[in-house]
Design a protein around this nucleic acid. Structure first.
Lengths: 338, 338
DNA sequence: ACGCGAATCGAAAACGTTTGTTGTTGATAA
DNA sequence: TTATCAACAACAAACGTTTTCGATTCGCGT
């Protein structure tokens, strides 16, 4: 069944399409009688405005692109939820694209955003993205861009980040206050800004807490499997750690079983703390204390910022970086002292 | 910077826009020399076809809608991954909408699909959706619809379902083969088709295995919290179960801790099996044997079916129901006999 | 009676494509 | 030479809106 258009209504009523359009949009030029008549018929004919045509004519879309490296069960579901709520409120909708951790696929996704003339784009960068290659395509996109979570330095866009350094620092300090003196750390790929910041916070925490940095207790792993291996190495050292900071969900999931099975009592002999989306720590046994990396909050913040950039499109702007603070959620696994 | 259009290229070359369009689309009417010239200039001017205009003119979109009840970390991330891979291959993109378990929001989302003239829609129904209310809006949508996972009976659409009954039956039989004789069950909302089917499989499994059905050992819970409560009740019965079937991820996550803490050795005194997306069972301790409800497979199947309906739009069709088989993944928690 | 400003609506162009039709060449065949 | 036919490209309409610019009517004050 063909959809009814403005023209159909106009023909039926013997008026001009422009009149129908104005009537439906409550334009003051149209008399109240006519408005009512038009609206009533529109209702009766199940008229739905064709957003594609609106978009083409008005030159502004109500679609927002979201590009993520991979659709994992950590973090991104809650990010998406946050984004959607913010967008819904303003009548925008979400187009989901995945780069699969490939810079090429990411460019391809950007091309899709350009071609579909999306109103704005939210990006969490793939781990293989280098700056200059993607930047020219990004400049073709004259829509606002907001980066979140996975970003690179010196990009001319708004960024939403976890307060990584602070979260790592707080984690370490919490371990120290629980009585730890030999603190290990498990980190992700050292090329990532995120890793560097959390490393920095880790060191700062040690310094502030007056606890020495022990290089052998620090490991870098790219994924859960690596994480498990590193954890085994760590726990089989002659002088084991009495506290471990784990930088992410992906790592804790691999590292925790080996840590638990190493023969040390948790948390009495070895405390564990991590930075996490907040779901895993409840499931692992014993439960893990963590600094909550709130995906919902981050998604919401990113989307709101993007929308505000869209409405103030014209005005020049300085790119800003907003930080989401991580909150400490305490479970059994660090409560060494009573 | 304004985007270059076909008109710009045409003006630059002193030819008609239609020639440019045909040249870019390798229409045989255009000479090879002209084609090359056009393409070269298009490249140089960074021309990107405006998909909105293409869509309006050709009357076919390359956007697919996805409506889910809620963006949870179980199941849907892998579903989305499966959908995206299938869509990507054919050059379609995904618009994500959430109904938040509300029938009204779901209708609103459908309206969005209609207004944006999406090429097709994938729906996992909200738990509050009743048939007739949404059906008239669904009929306005002249694009194909495929339902998956959460569906209702007697809807004139393709459906992709887990082989629920079979999965439940296999679960129970596996418990029985492990030596269980007093088998409990935890189920979701009894109004859901999914619950009814899994209940049916549960009963069939008992029958086939020659083990009696014990009504007191069966519980219904709407969510994880309820699940925990029900599990406590179950485990505090005078005659405890020696095997428990749990119908879903949402329930096992609430129910497992009480089950573990009830004083029975797992799996020696009480075996546990569930139907799951496949992630939780590895995290819980002790690990849980499960029948794998593969979201990726389901998303892929649903998307492929939708795309095939889209290409054969014209031909009449009989709605079909496809079943995804669940595979048994064995962990420690049911291996009672050795 | 004349002019003037509201009030209401119509005509047409525009957004960027695609496509059916028509027109212009140049070459080939009769 | 003329008719015929490719080959190529221009013209114009169309998709469904919105919006600029006019056109018409009516009431009212002078």
């Amino acid at each position: 069944m063909k959809k009814t258009t403005i023209k159909d209504i106009a023909r039926e009523l013997g008026v001009n399409p422009s009149t129908v359009s104005r009537a439906l949009n409550n334009h003051p030029d149209i008399g109240l009688a006519m408005r009512a008549e038009v609206k009533q018929l529109a209702e009766k004919m199940h008229y739905r405005p064709n957003q594609t045509a609106v978009h083409l004519r008005s030159q502004q879309s109500r679609l927002i692109g979201l590009i993520v490296p991979e659709m994992t069960m950590f973090f991104y579901p809650s990010v998406i939820k946050g984004i959607q709520e913010a967008l819904d409120k303003k009548g925008y909708h979400l187009v989901m694209l995945s780069s699969n951790e490939s810079a090429e696929q990411e460019m391809e996704n950007l091309r899709i955003c350009v071609e579909n003339d999306l109103a704005g784009v939210l990006i969490s960068l793939s781990r293989n993205t280098k700056i200059p290659a993607n930047l020219n395509l990004l400049s073709e996109l004259d829509a606002p861009v907001v980066l979140f979570d996975k970003v690179l330095n010196d990009m001319p866009f708004d960024s939403i980040l976890l307060a990584d350094e602070r979260a790592a620092q707080d984690s370490v300090l919490h371990l120290i206050h629980s009585g730890c003196t030999r603190i290990g750390g498990m980190f992700g790929n050292p090329n990532l800004l995120m890793t560097q910041l959390r490393m920095k916070g880790f060191l700062k925490g040690l310094e502030l807490g007056g606890v020495p940095f022990i290089e052998q207790l620090v490991r870098f792993a790219d994924n859960a499997i690596d994480g498990a291996q590193c954890a085994r190495e760590l726990m089989s050292l002659p002088e084991q750690p009495d506290g471990i900071f784990v930088m992410s969900d992906e790592l804790i999931i691999g590292a925790y079983p080996p840590i638990c099975n190493a023969g040390l009592a948790i948390p009495q002999e070895c405390s564990v703390i991590c930075i996490s989306d907040g779901f895993l720590p409840y499931l692992l046994y014993p439960q893990v204390t963590y600094l909550h990396h709130d995906g919902y909050e981050m998604g919401k913040t990113a989307a709101e910022r993007l929308l505000s950039r869209i409405s103030n499109q014209s005005s020049q702007f300085e790119p800003e970086t907003l930080y989401i603070q991580a909150k400490l959620i305490e479970c059994a696994s660090t409560q060494k002292v009573k």
